[in-house]
Amino acid sequence: MFRIFLGMDVLPALIVIVALVALATVLGFTLRARNTRVASGCGGDEHHLTVAGAEVTLVQLSSPVCSACVAMRRVATELVASDSTVAHREIDVVDEPDVARRHSVYSTPTTLVLDREGHVRSRLIGAVKPADVRAAVDAARTLAVVTA
């Protein structure tokens, strides 16, 4: 075994190892970018989902057995605790299949950022970083309205 290790066929093997690690790393970044991002909302009227009195409502579409949903819930709960103009509610995608269809929800958690009128201003896909959630919330607060 040691003879083989010192032999010349170790170099190609090491190249394969490095390539394997590189491939897995690229795959990881690709999956992360795909699974966690802030996407634009297509407006729509989801007034029935807003929480009365809140400037911005985060409607988190979750499913059971979804660890990212737990992480997203924590981020949203922390934001709501520090900002009383924001509300968060969580619904099971199974309970609201129409909402999921209207807003192209293909994975959980997807969190719809609703302004006061119930327009979907953006969609947070995956467990988004607190700073990105805050930015999306602030953007939804501004006056510009996208009506569908």
């Binding site: 929480v51 979750s62 949903c69 709960t77 509300a87 968060h88 509610r89 969580e90 619904i91």
Partner: peptide, 8 residues
């Protein structure tokens, strides 16, 4: 606000 009540 079903938050955390009977989810995961």
């Amino acid at each position: 606000a079903k938050t955390g009540a009977n989810e995961t």
